[in-house]
C-alpha cells in the first residue's frame, strides 16, 4: 500500500503538526516513567526507562503482594489514564496468590477497564504470550508474573528487552525472591512490605513499600527507600510517618 500521507508535502506538514500536539511520551519511546516523587525520580535521572524491561522481586516469599503492587504502580505510571496494561500470569501463580481483583485495583487508583488479563497455563505459554504482546505497539505496559522458572534465562530476557525497545512497551517481570539468573533488564528492584502509617483507630493505612534498587543500566547507584502509594493522586509519595501528621480528628474532618 502506498502511503498517501507521506507522498504530499502539505499532508506531511499537517502530520508533523498533529504529532507535535500528542503527548511527548507517545512520540518518544525512550521517554521516562516518573514516579511522581522528586526524591525518587532524581535518583533515577527522571524516572525509569520506557520501552524497557524492569525486574521486580520480593525480598521474601511473603512480600510477593508488595512486589506485584510495585509492578502495577510502574505500569500505571507508564500507562497513565488511557493506556492498556496487559497482565500475564501462570496458573501456578494464581493458585498461589489468588487472581487480580477488580474492586481492589480500583481502590488502588487504577481503572480495571484498562487492564487485560492473560491466564497462561504454564511458563512457556507465559513467555510466548509476553513475546507476542511486546510486539504490540498499542499496549502501554505489560506485567509478566510467572514465578520461579529456568525458562526466563539471559537469552529469553534479552529477547524480551529487544522487543520492548522496538515497540515502546514497558515490561515488568515479577520474579521469585533472590533470583540469581542473569538478565538483560534495565533495572532490578527488590520490594518488601513496610508498616503503614496507621489511621485513626489503629486501622491499616495506605500501601507502603520498602524499595531497594539493586541494579540499574543507566548507572544509578543502588539505594533503599520507603515510599507510600497515594491511591487518590496516583503517585508515589513520602511515607506519612515522615510527614507532619495532622491529628486523627482533623484527618477525618479534612476527609469529609
Amino acid at each position: 500500500m502506498v502511503n498517501i500521507i507521506d507522498s504530499h508535502p502539505s499532508l506531511a506538514r499537517l502530520k508533523r503538526q498533529i504529532e507535535a500536539l500528542t503527548p511527548s511520551a507517545w512520540r518518544d519511546p525512550r521517554g521516562r516513567v516518573s514516579f511522581g516523587l522528586d526524591r525518587l525520580d532524581a535518583r533515577l535521572d527522571g524516572g525509569l526507562a520506557r520501552g524497557a524491561v524492569h525486574e521486580v522481586l520480593p525480598r521474601a516469599e511473603g512480600d510477593w503482594p508488595s512486589a506485584s503492587a510495585f509492578a502495577l504502580i510502574i505500569a500505571r505510571r507508564a500507562a497513565e489514564a488511557a493506556g492498556t496494561i496487559l497482565w500475564i500470569s501462570s496458573d501456578a501463580q494464581r493458585r498461589r496468590y489468588g487472581a487480580p481483583y477488580g474492586p481492589g485495583l480500583a481502590d488502588l487508583g487504577l481503572d480495571p477497564d484498562q487492564i487485560l488479563l492473560v491466564h497462561a497455563p504454564d511458563d512457556l505459554a507465559c513467555l510466548k504470550a509476553a513475546a507476542d504482546s511486546l510486539a504490540c505497539t498499542g499496549l502501554a505496559a505489560l506485567i509478566l508474573d510467572m514465578g520461579a522458572t529456568q525458562r526466563l534465562d539471559l537469552t529469553a530476557s534479552r529477547r524480551l528487552a529487544l522487543a520492548a525497545e522496538r515497540s515502546g512497551v514497558t515490561a515488568l517481570l515479577l520474579r521469585p525472591p533472590a533470583s540469581i539468573l542473569a538478565s538483560a533488564a534495565a533495572s532490578r528492584w527488590q520490594v518488601a512490605a513496610a508498616p503503614s502509617a496507621p489511621l485513626p483507630g489503629n486501622a491499616p493505612g495506605r500501601l507502603t513499600l520498602s524499595l531497594a534498587l539493586l541494579r540499574h543500566r543507566g548507572g544509578a547507584t543502588p539505594f533503599d527507600m520507603v515510599v507510600e502509594w497515594n491511591n487518590e493522586y496516583r503517585r508515589v509519595c513520602e511515607p506519612t510517618l515522615l510527614r507532619d501528621l495532622p491529628a486523627p480528628s482533623q484527618r477525618r474532618h479534612m476527609a469529609a
Binding site: P65, A99, P100, P103, G104, G109, G205, R206, R251
Partner: peptide, 15 residues
C-alpha cells in the same frame, strides 16, 4: 473505587 478522600484501599489486590 468509591473511596472517600484519604482512605486506603478497602478491597484486596488479589482475591
Amino acid at each position: 473505587g468509591t473511596l472517600e478522600a484519604g482512605e486506603p484501599p478497602l478491597r484486596p489486590m488479589h482475591l
